[in-house]
Each structure stands twice: as structure tokens, then as C-alpha cells.
Amino acid sequence: MDDLQLVRELDDTPLKSADQLAAARAQLVAGIKPRRRGRAGVIAVATIAVAAAAAAVVVTVLPSGSPDEPRQDATPTGSTAPVDTAVQLLNHAAAAARSKPDEVPRPDQFYYVRNGEWEGWLSVDGTRDGRISTSRADEPVTTPGCVNGTRKVLDKYDKPTGATEKCTPVRAYRDDLPTTADDVLRLLKGEDKGRPVNSYGKDVLAMVSFSYLPGPQRAALFDAATQVPGLTVVEDVSSGRPGIGISWPVPEGSAPWAEPVVMVFDKDTYEYLGTKNSPQDAAGFVDQVGDRV
């Protein structure tokens, strides 16, 4: 299966039946029929359709992307003992996360992430308007903050439509996650008792990749991961800079050429650096949208 197939399988939007499309067909026929009205009539109908569409579009604003851990000055654990097992490495990573002076952002700040041309300014508490810029060629896009359970609906030019919608703040700073390994495990396990290691690994990866976890939360996550059987240590792996990695076997039934995911940690500080092939360019807290670290 190639990447085109993956993109294809991402989507399972069904084809609609003629009945379901009858309203649009009627709209078309109404626009076609009055031939005498000429093109001006057609354009008028089309304009109304555009206005209706702009008013009806429900915008879902869920900032994310692929944030990574910020490059902060981590406090070395002082341990020079060789790391033989994934459990040891995760223990070191947890200790590093705990001992590191944590950067605590103000609620009105933004978590800035850069990955190639992709840049995101994600609201720390989820209540401020963020921004995402997908490439230098495209205009950036505003992601409205959620205040008192509502947020504004923007039009296609990012101008407020006057409408609002219900929401839950999407926080970039995750001090709301559990701080004990047991609670994290419970969170990871859910109700699925026979969950494969691959599934755990990917959840952990998603957690550290999509938001900023403060030290205690990150430490709890690493502690929890030590209790997941099947994780292995990968020596001499790189994610931007050389490090040491944690991996897990590809599940049965995978393609014969499938490669395992490797999460990479700094060799000395055990700071998380990214996955084997995807180091983060920059990440950190800034005061305003547009500021960079």
C-alpha cells in the first residue's frame, strides 16, 4: 500500500443518492430555467448560493498540528550508566522531565511550533484566537478561541460573520493531564484489556507530539510507558541530533517492509527530540500571534 492509498483510505465519505441531491438539482434547474433572465439571473442565483453557503458553513476550529517538545535547557540527570532497556531509558526520561525547571506559560500566551513551512500559534488556554500558516504561499488562517463555551464563526476571509457556535477550549498547554503513572495507564488502557503494544506506543507518541506537556505530566507519561511490555531501546539513532530511541515491534500482519516508529531522546539529558525522521524545527511559548522563538 502506498501513501496515495493511505490518503484515499483516510476518507470514507459516501456517495449521495439522487434523492439526497434533489434539493441542489432543484436549485440548479431554478437557475437554468428563466432563460429570458439571461446570465444576470444565473449570477444572481449563484451569488445567493454563495451567501447561503458562507452563512451555513459550520467552522470547526481544533488547533493541533505536529507540535513537539520545546528545546529547553534540560537538567542532566547525572546518570552515566548505560541504558540497556527501554524501562531504564524511560525512567531516565521521566527523571529528566521531573527535574527540569518547567516553563509555565501565562494563559494568554501561545505555544509556537514550526515544522518546515508549517507554523502554528496555539492558544495556551484555548480561549485566544490562534493562527496556522500552512505554507508561505498561502494566507494564514485564524483559529478562533473559545470563551465561555462559545466562539465566533469566521467567513472565508477570516472576517467575523456575527454568528457564534458552542465549543470547548482546546488547550495547547496540558497541565490537565494526569501526573501519576497509574492514572496515565488508566487513560491509555481505556476499556481495552488486550491492547497491543503498538497501540500504546502510538498513543504516547500522539500525546508528546501534539501538545506541550509540563514536566510532571511528561514524567507520568514516561513512567506509565515503562509498564508497557514490548518496548525496546534503539542505540545510535538521530532526530536532528544524535540520540537514543525507544521503539516497539511492528504488529503482526504488517507489510513485510514496515519499519517501526522510533521516539528519540537526547543521549545526555533524555529530553525528547522527536521521531527518527521528524525533528521539530522550533517550539516554545510566545506572547503574541506572529512572534517566533
Binding site: 500500500m1 502506498d2 501513501d3 493511505l6 483510505e9 497491543p196 503498538n198 497501540s199 502510538k202 511492528v250 504488529p251 500482519g253 504488517s254 507489510a255 517492509w257 514496515a258 519499519e259 517501526p260 516508529v261 525522521n277
Partner: peptide, 11 residues
């Protein structure tokens, strides 16, 4: 390597 992409989606 797209096989890692596949791995991410597997299982």
C-alpha cells in the same frame, strides 16, 4: 519511508 506511515495506521 512510506512503510512507516503504513505502520502508523496499522492496528
Amino acid at each position: 519511508n512510506h512503510t512507516e506511515v503504513e505502520e502508523l495506521l496499522n492496528n
